[in-house]
């Protein structure tokens, strides 16, 4: 691939950041959609409390990558290990990983037939079997964390996009996950609402949450990311700190991409 001398993709990808303890380990992962290979030889290790931002052109496999981590897509080859649990066909492992991994979607995917409070308490009540009072207490504290406790009795349809996305974050956090996945959380928002969602994500990152964020918000990547992963054509092309990545990119693809969007 690259002929650059002092840049080692494998090392950059496999060295966990954060506390240095491993949270997510992905080895040699491939993913096919029919005849189309969506992911090729993905290797990535994410450390505890690390924030990894994944960027790349559309269709590069960013979303597929994080959707494989909680089995919204089934990977075909290789291994994914989340907090010591391997993602396999074992029903128990799948449920265990999903319990520990929260996800925020581009289109929010709030449940429209439930109130905000019911949206947030649903999983703790149904999956963790918490008593109602405890689930509601936790839900309210998460809603306060994203600064919209007053919206609890409303329905999602009554909220703005930014508010809905913050509810979605609270919904994921209410399960007290160890990892949070963000799939382009601000792409469907009007510009004036992006900041309130990013603020909530920054606060979350500062609190020490392990996060993988697929986004086009370069400002967020620069400010919060421990490492930035650049993907193209289903492969990880370059991995590095924000400084390395934005100031001194090594690969031609990366340079081209950055020149197009900055």
């Amino acid at each position: 691939m690259s002929t650059e001398t002092n840049y080692d993709l494998t090392r950059a990808a496999m060295e966990p950041g954060g506390t240095g303890e491993v949270m997510i380990e992905i080895h040699d992962m491939d993913k096919w959609f029919g005849d189309f290979q969506a992911l090729k030889d993905i290797n990535l290790v994410v450390g505890k409390q690390e924030v990894v931002v994944v960027i790349g052109p559309s269709g590069s496999g960013k979303s597929t990558l994080i959707r494989c981590i909680n089995r919204l897509e089934k990977h075909d080859e290789g291994t994914i290990v989340v907090d010591g649990v391997e993602m396999s066909d074992d029903l128990k492992n799948i449920q265990e990983i999903r319990r520990e991994v929260g996800m925020v979607f581009q289109s929010f995917n709030l449940f429209p037939h439930l109130t905000v409070l019911d949206n947030v308490t649903l999983a703790p009540r149904q999956v963790r079997n918490w008593p109602k009072a405890k689930a509601e207490e936790e839900a309210m504290s998460q809603l306060e964390r994203v600064k919209i406790p007053e919206q609890a009795p409303k329905y999602p349809g009554q909220l703005s996009g930014g508010q809905q996305q913050r509810v979605a974050i609270a919904r994921a956090l209410a399960m007290q996950p160890k990892v949070m996945l963000f799939d382009e959380p601000t792409s469907a928002l009007d510009p004036e609402m992006i900041k309130e969602v990013l603020d909530a994500m920054v606060e979350l990152a500062e609190s020490g949450m392990t996060m993988i964020v697929v986004t086009h918000e370069m400002g967020f990547a620069r400010a919060v990311a421990d490492r930035v992963v650049f993907m193209a054509d289903g492969q990880i092309v370059e991995v590095g700190t924000p400084e390395h990545f934005f100031e001194n990119p090594q690969e031609e693809r990366t340079k081209l991409f950055l020149s197009q969007i900055l």
């Binding site: 999903r98 991994v101 929260g102 996800m103 979607f105 709030l110 449940f111 919904r171 994921a172 399960m175």
Partner: peptide, 15 residues
């Protein structure tokens, strides 16, 4: 019912 609803339900760990 949009596919996203099922994905969200899976993601929060519902059986």
């Amino acid at each position: 019912v949009p596919q996203g609803q099922i994905e969200a339900a899976q993601a929060v760990g519902l059986s």
